[in-house]
Design a protein around this nucleic acid. Sequence first.
DNA 1: TAGGATGATTGGTATGACGAATAAGGCGGA
DNA 2: TCCGCCTTATTCGTCATACCAATCATCCTA
Lengths: 248, 248
Amino acid sequence: MTNKADQGRLYERVARELAARIADGTYPVGRRLPSERELTQIHGVSRPTVREAIIALELDGLVEVRTGSGVYVLLRVPPGGKAGATDVGPFELLEARHAFESEACALAASRITEETLGELDQLAAEMNSADVAMAEDADRRFHLLIAVATQNSVMASTVEELWDARARSPQYKLLSAKAHAAGVAPRIDEHREIVAALRTRKPEVARRAMRQHLGRVLASLLAATEVQEIERARAKVAAARQRYASVV
Amino acid sequence: MTNKADQGRLYERVARELAARIADGTYPVGRRLPSERELTQIHGVSRPTVREAIIALELDGLVEVRTGSGVYVLLRVPPGGKAGATDVGPFELLEARHAFESEACALAASRITEETLGELDQLAAEMNSADVAMAEDADRRFHLLIAVATQNSVMASTVEELWDARARSPQYKLLSAKAHAAGVAPRIDEHREIVAALRTRKPEVARRAMRQHLGRVLASLLAATEVQEIERARAKVAAARQRYASVV
DNA sequence: TAGGATGATTGGTATGACGAATAAGGCGGA
DNA sequence: TCCGCCTTATTCGTCATACCAATCATCCTA
C-alpha cells in the first residue's frame, strides 16, 4: 500500500495531505472533516495512522476534535504561512502586555536617553496620520522603542514577541476592526503622557502611565465586543498543547 | 487503568508524564526511553495511545524516534523560539524575570486556587532535596506553576521561555556553579514566603514577595562573580522539528 | 406540536498480529 | 586469537478488528 519515496512516516504524509486540503479550501474552516473511517479509505491507511495524523494537526491548532461528533477545521493556514506561530487569545495578550510593558516602561524611565525621548515624541506625533496602517505602525514602534530603552535585550525581545503574536492573531484583527467601528480613536494624547512620564525619570510614574494606557485599551476592546464568542474557539486550540506542555 | 476523571485525552496524560520524566532527569538526554510495549505496562494504556503520546513529544522536538532501535531523548527545544538571540546575558535574563515574574505573581494572587497553593507548598519542600538537580527542578516548577496560576497562557509561556533561555545559556550555568561554590543556599524560606503572600490574595503583597526573592537572587549572583565572557555552546536544532514544519 | 426515547454515527481505546529496520550475539574462517 | 558474516531477538511501523462512550438525528408518543 505504500507509495514510492516515503521519506518519513506514514502519518506525516497523511497530515501533509490533510493540511494541504485545508489550505486549498477543500475542507473549509468550520466544516467537519470526513470521519476517521472514511479517511481510512480515502488515504489508504489504517485508522491508527489517520488518528496520528489528526493529532499532529490538532497539536498545530489546525483542527479541533469533538468526541462523538467529528474533527472540525479551526483555521486555514495560507500556503507559505509561518509554522509554529501559536495563535492566542487577544485578551490574554493584552493582559500580558498590561503587566509586562508597564514594568519595561518603569525600567526604561531610569535608563532612557534624551535622544530616545525625542524619537518617542516624533512617533507620538506620527499617530496623527490619516493612514490607519501608518498610525498603527507608529503605535508599534512607540511601544517597542520603550522596551528597547530598557537596554535589556530579553525584555525588548519579549515585548516584540507579544506584538508579533498580535499581528498573527486573526481574532485580534477582528476585535481591532470592531473597536474601530465603535469609534475608538488612536490614543496619541496618552502616548504623550507616557513620554512625559518617562521624562521625569521616575519609574513609578512611568509605570503608572503605561499601565493606565494599556488598561484603557483593554477596556475599550472589552466594551466593543462580547467576549464569549471569540474566546471559546481559541481556548480549545491551546488546550491540548498547553495541557501537557505546561508541566514540562 | 489509573484515573478516569482525566480531562482531555489519554495520550495527553501520557505525554505529560513522559515529558515530566524527561524534565526531571529520569530519562536523561541521549538515553533511550523504555520500549513502547514497556511504556504500555508502565502507564497502563495501549500501544496506540503510547504512540500518540510519543508523536506529540516528537512534534515538540523532545524526542527522536529511530525505527527498529528506540525512542531517544533530545535536547529540549524552546517553544516557538525566535532564531537568533539564543544565548543571552544571565543578568539581563534575571532582570527580566525580576520585572515580569513579579507581575505574574501579583496577577496569580487574585486567581490562584487553594489546590495550586498546596502544590506550591509541596514544591517548596522539595527544594530541600539533597539532589541538586532535583532541587533546581523544583525551583523551576515552583516559578512556572505560579505563572500558570495567572490563567493567562501568554504570561505562562513567556515565563517558561525565560527559564528555557536560562537553561540554554552556558554563561548562566557557570554563574550558577560559581554561586553555589560561594555558598549560596537554595532559598526555600523565600519560596515559603511567596506562597504565604499568595495566600493573602493581595496582588501587592505577592508582587513584593516575588520581587524581593528575585532581587536577592540577582544580588547573590552579582556578588559571587565578575562578569566574564564564555565561549557559547552549540544548541542544535532538532530534526523532528524540521520535518514537522514541512507538514504544515 | 412538543418532548423524550431510540438507534445510527463518530471518536476513544484496547488487543493482537505481521512486516521491516536495527542491534546484539554466535559461528566459522583466517 | 581475531575478524567478519549471519542468525536471531528486539524494536518501531502499520494494519485489522472490536467494543465503549459521547453525540446526533430520527421517530414515536403524549
